[in-house]
Nucleic acid binder design. Sequence first.
DNA 1: GGCCTCCCTGCACAACCTGTACACACCGGG
DNA 2: CCCGGTGTGTACAGGTTGTGCAGGGAGGCC
Lengths: 161, 161
Amino acid sequence: MTIDELDARLIELFAREPRIGVLEASRRLGVARGTAQARLEKLRSGGVIRGFGPDVDPAAIGFPVSAFATLEIKQGQGEEVRRHLGAVPEVLELHTITGQGDMLCRLVARSNEDLQRVIDKVVGFEGIVRSSTAIVMENPVPLRVLPLVRHAARISAGGVA
Amino acid sequence: MTIDELDARLIELFAREPRIGVLEASRRLGVARGTAQARLEKLRSGGVIRGFGPDVDPAAIGFPVSAFATLEIKQGQGEEVRRHLGAVPEVLELHTITGQGDMLCRLVARSNEDLQRVIDKVVGFEGIVRSSTAIVMENPVPLRVLPLVRHAARISAGGVA
DNA sequence: GGCCTCCCTGCACAACCTGTACACACCGGG
DNA sequence: CCCGGTGTGTACAGGTTGTGCAGGGAGGCC
C-alpha cells in the first residue's frame, strides 16, 4: 500500500479535526467530495487507517502513572504469560522482544504506590522469572504517527528516502 | 474525573464502531439521545476522550518493523536530545524514564536492515552516550485502553479495587 | 496514433444525523 | 419542602452521508 500527498493531507486533517466530516475535508483539501470519500475508503480498506476509535487518556480516568516493565519468561511459558497479562487491565500493551528480557509491557497505575500493586499482579505468575521496571517521568513525544505519514508520502512522491 | 458504567459502555461502543454517531449509540445503550450526547461532551471536556483521531497502522504504510531503544543521555543534554528525536519521523514516541537508561523511545523502520539506518539517525547525536535496542517480534497485546476503562467504571460504581 | 483504464469532477436525491432548545419528571440533599 | 442535577421526549432547521451517473483529462499499452 502506497500513500500519496493527498492521502497524507487527508490523514493529517482528520487527525487535527476529527469532527469535520468528509464534505468539509474535501472543501479544505480543494478536491471533490467523491475524491476525499474514495481516498478515505481506500485508506480504510487498505488497513492504513484502522479506525477512528476514541482516544482515551488513562491519566484522566485515574491512572496518571505509567511504566515499562521488562519481563523474563521461563522457557515454554510464553503462551500462559500472554494470557495472564492480557487479562490485567493495567497492562496497556505487550510486546515480545529480542535482547535481554523476553517481553516488554506498558503499565499504568493510580500512583507510584499503586504501581507496586500492579507490578505484583503482573509479575505474580508462574512463568515470569524476573522483571525490571522503569517508571515514565516525562513524555516529550507522545505517541504520534503523523510525521511518519508525511514522511511516507514524501517518499512515494518520488522524493529521496 | 470519575467515570461510570454508562460512560464506559459509551466509550466501548464508540471504540468498536466509531462510525455510528450519537443517535445510534443512544439507541443501543437504551438512553435518550440528549443523555448520550451530554455524556460524550462531558468525557470530551473532562479530557477523558482526547479525540477521535484516525488510527494509522505504521506497518500498512511501509514500516512493519518496530523496536524500542533505551538511550543514555549526557548530563544536561536532555533538551537537545528531545528536539533531535522529535524531528525524526521514525520516532513514534519518547519517554524519559527511571532506572538505567534515561530515555526510552519507540521506533519503526521499513525492515531490519532499515532499522540500522534509523538507529544511526537517532543515535548519531552529540548528547547520546549509549543506546541499546530491542526489536519487537510479536505484539500479543496491542495498545488498548478499554479494559482499563471498564475497570475504572467498576471501581467508581462502588466495586472493589 | 489510437484505445482503454483509472481517477477526479460535478451534480442530484433521498435518508439521516447533529446542534440546540424547551418542558417535564425523578431523586437525593439542604 | 424546595432546589439543583440529570435523564426523557420532542421539535426544528441545517448540514451530511451514501450512492449513482455522465464527462473529461492523464498515462500506459498495443
